[in-house]
Amino acid sequence: MALISDGGFIEDAWRRLADEEALPKAGKVIVSLPRLQHALDVLGPEASLGVIVMNTTEPSALIDALPRLGLVSISFPAFSDGRGFSLARLLRRAGFKGELRASGRLVADQYAHAVGCGFDTIEIPDDLAERQDEEQWRAALNVYAMSYQRGYSGRGSILEARRRAARP
């Protein structure tokens, strides 16, 4: 797996815990959603805990846990399945401040979409990272200077810029 952040490939500070693995006392680990409540109960508030969820997960299943989570990873079963983008928006709206990760076969051309919806990092399989290297991911962030939408992250808003220009 390769991890992309701010247009570069980085080391993953988090570790995905298999369901049969014991919960470690320290370190940053990602658990599955069914195991989340147990992990929250067992680990102290100081532990760094992440969760991986399907893109069909209802935000309400996570709301209570969000303040204690350092990471939420959203699975993209196919790169063309855009449900994860809406889920990311909803989690940000619910106040989630930690790392939001998109996990799946996303392509570089979707990077700006992902950042716009609130994702910080993208996790892709190695074979994809070989074809789509760091340079392509970095370039994808800078294709557009601004965007037409309002309230999405990443690029500046064309409408805001127009308003600033129109002010005397």
């Binding site: 790169f79 063309s80 399945d81 855009g82 983008f85 809406s86 928006r89 979707q110 700006a112 979409h113 992902a114 950042v115 716009g116 919806c117 557009y144 965007s147 037409y148 939408q149 999405y152 990443g154 064309i158």
Partner: peptide, 13 residues
């Protein structure tokens, strides 16, 4: 047209 152009959230419907 402007709002829908390359919408970050609604391009993979």
């Amino acid at each position: 047209r402007q709002w829908s152009s390359l919408h970050p959230e609604f391009s993979f419907l």
